[in-house]
Design a protein around this nucleic acid. Sequence first.
DNA 1: ATATTATGTGAATACATGATCACATGAGGC
DNA 2: GCCTCATGTGATCATGTATTCACATAATAT
Lengths: 196, 196
Amino acid sequence: MREKKSTRIRKEEIVQAALEVVGGKGVRALTIAAIAESAGMSEANIYRHFSGKDELYSSLADFIGNSVMGNAATIAAGGRKPLEKLETIFFSHIKIIAENPGVPRFIFSEDVFLGHPDVAKSLTTRIGSYVETVSGVIAAGVREGELKPEISPRETALTMLGMIQFTALRQTIGVLNCDITVESKKLWANFMKLIS
Amino acid sequence: MREKKSTRIRKEEIVQAALEVVGGKGVRALTIAAIAESAGMSEANIYRHFSGKDELYSSLADFIGNSVMGNAATIAAGGRKPLEKLETIFFSHIKIIAENPGVPRFIFSEDVFLGHPDVAKSLTTRIGSYVETVSGVIAAGVREGELKPEISPRETALTMLGMIQFTALRQTIGVLNCDITVESKKLWANFMKLIS
DNA sequence: ATATTATGTGAATACATGATCACATGAGGC
DNA sequence: GCCTCATGTGATCATGTATTCACATAATAT
C-alpha cells in the first residue's frame, strides 16, 4: 500500500493531477481514472478526499481563480502608469496560458458551463470583474493622455481580452505553430498602435 | 414506421439536428441518442446514413465550413471598398453566431480537436484561410488609405477575429445579458476608431 | 401484382465511466 | 506492543454511450 498523507496534501495533489490531465488531454479526458493515474493512486482513493466530481470541479475552479485571475487586480492596483499596467496584465496572462494550457481549457469548457452551473457562476463573476478591472485601467490611460481620447474603455478591454482568448484558443487547437510568446509580442505591438 | 426519404435528405436532416443539439446542450451532449431524438428518428437509423460518429463529425464540419467560413471569402472577393467588406464580414459572422450558437461551440470544441484529428485538421486549414482572407482585406484598406498605415494586417485580423470569438464565448456561457447584436454594434464602433 | 432494394426500428452487445463497499494497512496515542 | 482510526485499494455495481443485428416496411422496378 502507498504511503499515507493528510487529506489537505492529497487534495492538492489531486487538483494538480487534474489540471495536468486537462492540460494534456482536455477536459473531456478528465475522468476519475485519468486523475487517479496522473496522481499515482487508486480511483477509490479520490473519493476518500472528494465527495465526487462536482467537488473536484469546484476545487479546480477555486485554484485557477485564486492563483490566476486575481493577478490582474493586483497589477491594476499597483502604482505604475496605465499603459505599463495594461502591458503587464497582457503578458502575465499570456504567460499563464503558455505554462498551463489546462487553465484556459477548463475556464471555457462546456463541461463547466453546461454541466456545473455553480462553478460556472463563480467563474462568470470573476470574468466580469476581470473585464471591469481592465476597463478601469484603460479609462485611466485615456484620462492621463496615454491612450487615444475617442476609444471606449469597456469595448477596448473586451477587444484586448478577446485577443488573449483567441490566442489561447489557437494554441489549444494547434493552429499556432510558432511560439505563443513570439505571437503575443506581435499582437501586443500592433494593439499598441491601435489604442495610442 | 416513419415515412421514408432519400439518404441525401436524411443526411441533411441529421446534420441539422446535430447542430441543434450542439447549440442547445453543447458538444458534450452530442450523443447518437440526442441526435436521433432531435431528428425524430431511431438511433439505428442514424447508422443507416452515416458509418458512425466520425463521419457525422466530418459532415458537420463540412456544413459549417461551407455555409459559414466560405461567406467571408465571397464578401472579400466582392467589389466594394475594404472597410465596407470588413464591416460586412464582421456582422454576418456575428449574425451566424447569434442564430446558431452550435457553430462556434463545435468549431472550438475539445471533442473535435482532441478526439477527431482529421476533422480538426480540416477546420484549422479553414480558420487559417479565414485569417488570411481578413488580413488581405485589411491590407487593401491600408493601401487605399481607408485604414491607418502603421497597423499590421495579420495581427489586426487576429484581433478582430478574437473580438468576434470572445463575443461568441460570452454569449455561450451567459455572461452577455444584453442582446448580442447590440453588443456587437458597440464593439464594431470602437474597433473602427481603433483601426482608422 | 410481384420481386427487389433501400429505408426504418426495437432489442441486444460491448465497453467506458462515476460511484460504492468490504476489507487491508499505515500512523499516532496509550 | 496494542488499539483506534484515518487513509488506501481491488472488486463490484449502475448507468450511459456507440454500434450492430435481425426483422419490418415503404418505394420502385419489372
